[in-house]
Amino acid sequence: MSFRVEQVLTPEGIRGPVEGGLQCGMVISIARAFGDLISPEGDREFLIGRDARSSSASLAEAVSIGLRSGGHHVTHIGLCATPMLRWYAAEQGFDGAVMITGGRLPPTYNGLKLYTHHARALSVGHGLEEVLARVEPPFHSGHACTPELHYSSPLADYAAVIRSHCRTHTPIKVAIDAGNGIGGLDTRMVFSHLHTVRIWELGFEPDPAFPKRSPDPQTPGALDALSDCVVTNGCHFGIAFDGDADALMLVDETGRSISPDRFGGLLALILLEQQPAGTVIHGPAVSPTVVAAIRAAGGRPLEVRDGSAATIQAAMREARALFGISDQGNYFYGDLYATDNALRSLIELINGLADRSQPLSALLDALSLVAA
């Protein structure tokens, strides 16, 4: 294997084309290096999950081989959204976790998201370079490969936790576009027991080809079908997940798309009603109007140097923050181990709308009035 860091290291993490880039041999070496970073002596517990891309199953096996060759123990949870993996890793106290997902990238790409204890994300500037610096081809194993493979299915428990945050019984209609990514699985489980919420499903069946739209919901045209569904069926709003369902985009009842920072600002106001004076971490792309609205509502906005998941998560833990707003449509919750969770954002928006007589468009337009 001819390993070159520049092949896979991006500002978002480990990403690359599967052909000629992120191949199994390379992934075995990266996983081994990650395990060695956590504990060179082995004997630690790791969690692995994956999305539905064609290459993800084989890459998950490569991660397993790399970790087990270092003497570590591996639990697979199979197909899952990234937020579910992070929740389960933190909830069960795993020493590390790996999510195999291309996220918003095209189907021919894939990637690895690495997490340490308490689901802390590794990224550029937050430990990822240390992992890749340990990769030295050719790959050699100093441990016998641990024979045990464990399997777990936390979907029902995870869905119950997300569902528990719903505080309303007011009937509401929502269009949800999973984009043929992984988000339809846990979304369907959550809403199967919330009978006052009627949902219109778009692209809920995982398909590695992403035939309906780009896995990046911010791509021009990606929200067209969702907007049409909202208007045609008289929904209160619609949301679209990205490929691994940790980020989402919003359209209001008129089919108008809403910028991520305005959506984040509205979520912050909803949460501040329940927990006044909470700290809200945000990236530099959040507009001054949204920051002013958070402050006017009694919150304590705190800007960090960039809107990456690792930076926001670290700042939230240090400040014991209530909420975090990234620059890319990811929203973080202090009571979910400071991780981002698109389904929780959907639930909080349902809570906020149920408490008000105004449509979503009016609430969003009022953000600037709150700041005034």
Rank of each mutant, 00 (worst) to 15 (best):
T289Y: 10
T196R: 04
A292Y: 11
H165I: 00
I14R: 06
L223K: 09
P137L: 08
E12H: 06
S308V: 12
W200Q: 03
E136N: 05
V98D: 10
E45Q: 08
G13W: 07
P288K: 11
L155Q: 15
L85I: 12
R300M: 13
L322F: 00
A372W: 04
L67Q: 04
H195I: 10
G16L: 01
G35T: 14
D261T: 14
F210R: 08
G298S: 14
E205Q: 12
A310P: 08
S2K: 15
G264M: 12
G352A: 06
I270S: 14
D365K: 06
E61A: 13
E45M: 02
L9K: 09
S141E: 11
P137N: 05
V98L: 11
S69C: 11
L369F: 03
T187C: 09
I48P: 13
C24P: 09
R320N: 15
L302N: 10
M84I: 08
F139M: 13
I28A: 02
G181I: 09
H165Q: 01
V27I: 10
H150Y: 04
H117E: 13
L223Y: 06
A225I: 14
L346K: 01
T289F: 10
A362Q: 12
P284E: 03
W200A: 02
Y333M: 02
T311I: 00
A277F: 15
A310L: 07
M189D: 08
L128T: 05
E253V: 08
E91G: 05
S29K: 04
T196L: 02
D340Y: 01
I30W: 07
T187Y: 07
G21V: 01
L202P: 05
P301A: 03
P215R: 15
S64E: 12
Y109G: 03
L364Q: 03
S345Y: 02
T279S: 15
L248A: 13
S259V: 14
C235V: 04
C145S: 04
Q218F: 13
D95I: 01
T279I: 15
T254G: 03
A372M: 09
I270R: 14
L369C: 02
C166L: 14
A119R: 04
S54C: 00
A319S: 11
H126A: 13
S345G: 15
R317S: 12
R295H: 14
L353F: 03
L322V: 01
T187W: 06
G278I: 08
S39L: 01
R317T: 13
S141H: 12
A240N: 12
R44L: 06
T146R: 10
A178Y: 09
G20N: 08
I176Q: 10
I312A: 01
I38H: 07
L132M: 13
Q218H: 13
Q328D: 09
R15Q: 01
D365A: 12
D177A: 11
L346S: 02
V290H: 13
G20Q: 09
L364I: 10
I65A: 05
A119I: 09
A62M: 03
G238N: 07
I77D: 04
R134C: 02
A319D: 04
Y151T: 01
L59V: 00
T196F: 05
D306W: 02
A222D: 02
L367E: 00
V231G: 00
G25E: 11
A81F: 00
G13F: 08
G243P: 14
F210N: 08
R163I: 07
F332K: 11
P154G: 05
A372P: 04
Y151C: 00
E91V: 05
P106V: 01
F94A: 09
P83A: 15
